[in-house]
Structure formats: C-alpha cells, structure tokens
Computed example of a mutant assay.
Amino acid sequence: PFPSVALVGYTNAGKSTLFNRLTGAEVMAKDLLFATLDTTQRTIRLPQGRPAIIADTVGFVSDLPHELVESFRATLEEVGEADLILHVRDIASPDSAAQAKDVEAVLEQIPTPDGKTRRILEVWNKIDLLEPETRETVVGQAERLAREGTAAAVSAWTGEGIEALRDTIASLIDDDPETQLTVEPHRGDLLAWLYANGRVTGRETDDDGRVHLTVRLHPAALGRLERLYPDVID
C-alpha cells in the first residue's frame, strides 16, 4: 500500500551509497559493474512520517544489450512499477551527460503498467567532488529544477542535500487523498494504526479527549481501515 521509489543509475553513480544514506542500511557500495545484482528494498519514513518503500537496483552501463535487460527483467520490472524513479547521476563525471542518456535508453525498454505515468527525479550526486565554482552553478541549477520536481543536487557521501531530497521525494509521491477521522480516547490501537499506515497532517484533541485527525491514506490502506475499524470516518 505504500508508494514505491526505485533508484536507477549508471554504474558507480553512487546509488547504493545514496540508498544507505536514505535508509541507514548497509548495502555493498563498490565501483563494480553490477555490484547490486538484485533488488534491495527498505521501508523509509519521509518528512512528516510519510512511509515509502525504496529499492536499489542494478547499475546500468553503456549500450546495455537487450538480452541483458531481459536477464534482469524481474529486477527491472520494479523500476517500471515504481511510483517515482530516482535517476542517480555522477554529476562530477565528465561523462555524466552521456551516461544519463544510456540510462534513459534502458528505461525506455522497461514497460510501464497501463495507465501509469512514469515520474523521474534526477539526483545529481557527488557534488562534493566538484570545484567550488562549478559546484555553485550545479547546485543553483538543481535548486531551480527542484521547484518543478525534476532534479536535486546531493552528496550521498557527506549527506549534503539529503534532507531537501527527502522533502522533494515526499512532495512527488504525496498524492493520497486526505481523510478526516475522529478517534475516541480509548482507541489507542486505531491511533497507532493510522500513524503506521498513513501520514497524519493535522491533529487536534477536544475537551472530551477525542482526537480529530487529518490523515493521508493510500486507497488500499483506506480500504483496510474501513474493514478493520468501521464507523470511524467522519
């Protein structure tokens, strides 16, 4: 029921390092072709408690043959089904633009479920390796594009820009409808369920101890709520 985020990128772009930074996990991060051969998934909490599933996938290389794409079909299918794709780029590499085109070419080979719009956020990684003047230009450009939800500049190694990236991710996947709920004082179980399965955006407690919540819930989570806790929706 949680929105899904998939990391893709050219080999050595820093995907696994970024994954580790976002999740706190220890995933092998090496300068090796296909260092990540399968998909590693974790549940993360975005700003304001928004839960999401994030997946680290295989690194791409130049002219990835169609046959090789087929061999990683199961892994890459998760990319096609993701609610948001983070295209991680080594922005300090002189080949960054060419590598980005290679990744985009592979993404075009991955089918998207019917009716789903592919949403991609470029993550310009390794800004700590840029010369100061170049870095200022790159960060400024990324900040302008961030307002459109298309790019973010970070250093997965130092952590710079990670919190802003979290905010951008949350804004791009936070399209679940808001629901108004009233929780009786003795329903701590319901309150805990709502915090675990949705994102609470407003909370007030009245004089009788009732908690009035505004919560964003994925439609599947809303369906489970109605089955588990009938008569709670205002």
Rank of each mutant, 00 (worst) to 15 (best):
G49S: 11
E122I: 00
V58R: 13
A82K: 13
P51W: 04
D114H: 13
E70I: 00
T117W: 01
E77R: 15
V103T: 04
R50K: 15
F60D: 01
L107E: 10
T112N: 02
H87N: 15
V103F: 05
I127C: 12
E104N: 03
P65I: 03
D95N: 12
S93D: 14
L129G: 00
D90S: 12
V79Y: 09
V61H: 13
R89Q: 11
V88H: 14
G49A: 07
L129N: 04
K116I: 00
E122L: 06
P111K: 08
I110F: 05
E70W: 00
V103E: 06
V69E: 08
I127W: 10
D56P: 02
V58I: 14
N125L: 07
K126Q: 15
I54M: 06
T57D: 09
T57G: 05
F60N: 06
E70Q: 13
P111Q: 11
L107R: 04
P65V: 06
E77W: 09
V103N: 06
L129S: 06
V69G: 12
P113G: 10
D95V: 00
L121K: 10
K101R: 15
I91H: 04
V123G: 12
L121H: 08
E70L: 04
P111I: 10
E67K: 15
G59M: 05
E104W: 01
A52E: 08
K116R: 10
R73P: 00
K116Q: 12
E81L: 11
E81Y: 06
A105N: 13
E78S: 05
K101Y: 01
L130D: 12
R118P: 07
K126A: 14
A97T: 09
